[in-house]
Deep mutational scan, measured.
Amino acid sequence: TYYTVKSGDTLNKIAAQYGVSVANLRSWSGISGDLIFVGQKLIVKKG
């Protein structure tokens, strides 16, 4: 599943919304830090 980052989103908010960890969200999407951008597509795998 892809999630497109919206204004005001954080990795914590997105992870909580999908019931996954921030570490997994980073790993799946190839992100090393906490910086995400509006319009960026993140990969989300539901448990």
Rank of each mutant, 00 (worst) to 15 (best):
K41C: 14
K41E: 10
K46P: 15
S27D: 15
Y2M: 10
S32K: 12
G8P: 02
K45W: 12
A23V: 10
Y2P: 07
G33C: 09
Q40G: 03
S29G: 08
K13H: 10
W28N: 06
D9Q: 01
G47N: 12
K13S: 15
S32A: 11
L35Q: 14
I14E: 00
G19R: 09
G8N: 06
A23G: 09
G39K: 02
I14V: 08
S32T: 14
D9S: 01
G30I: 05
V22I: 11
I36N: 01
I14L: 07
L35Y: 14
G39W: 04
V44G: 02
S32H: 12
A15D: 00
V5Y: 03
N12D: 15
L35T: 14
S7I: 15
K45P: 10
L35E: 15
T4Q: 09
L11V: 06
Y3R: 01
G47M: 12
S7Y: 13
S27P: 01
R26G: 04
V20Y: 03
K41M: 12
G33H: 08
D9E: 04
Y3H: 13
Y3N: 01
G33V: 07
D34E: 10
F37T: 12
I36H: 01
T1L: 14
G39T: 03
K13P: 00
V22R: 03
V38H: 06
N24S: 11
T1K: 12
V20H: 02
V38E: 11
V44P: 03
D34S: 09
I31D: 03
A16K: 12
G39E: 04
Q40L: 07
A23P: 08
G30T: 06
V5F: 04
V20K: 01
K6P: 01
I31S: 03
S32Q: 13
S7H: 14
Y2I: 13
Y3L: 05
N12K: 14
D34W: 09
V5G: 01
S32L: 11
A15M: 02
K46A: 14
A23T: 10
Y2R: 07
S21W: 03
T4P: 03
S27K: 14
K6L: 09
L25K: 00
G39Q: 02
L42I: 12
Y2N: 08
L25Y: 00
T4F: 12
G19C: 10
L25W: 00
Y18W: 12
K45L: 12
G8A: 05
T4N: 06
W28H: 04
G19I: 03
I36W: 03
N24W: 08
T1R: 12
S21G: 05
S27R: 12
S32Y: 10
T1H: 14
G8Q: 05
S7W: 12
A23Q: 12
V20P: 01
A23L: 07
S21P: 07
Y18A: 07
I36P: 03
G47R: 11
K41T: 12
A23F: 06
V38L: 08
T1M: 14
S7R: 10
Q17S: 10
K45M: 13
W28Y: 06
L25F: 03
F37L: 09
D9P: 00
W28K: 02
N12L: 15
K41Y: 07
I31R: 00
S32V: 15
A16C: 12
K6F: 04
T10A: 04
S29M: 05
F37C: 13
T4Y: 13
G8I: 03
Y18K: 04
K45N: 12
V44W: 04
V22C: 07
I14P: 00
S21E: 08
W28L: 07
I36M: 05
N12W: 14
G30C: 11
S21N: 07
W28I: 06
K6M: 10
S27W: 10
K13Y: 09
I43K: 10
N24E: 15
K46Q: 15
T4E: 11
L25D: 01
I43M: 12
L25P: 00
Y3W: 04
G33L: 08
A15S: 08
N12Q: 15
L11Q: 01
I36S: 02
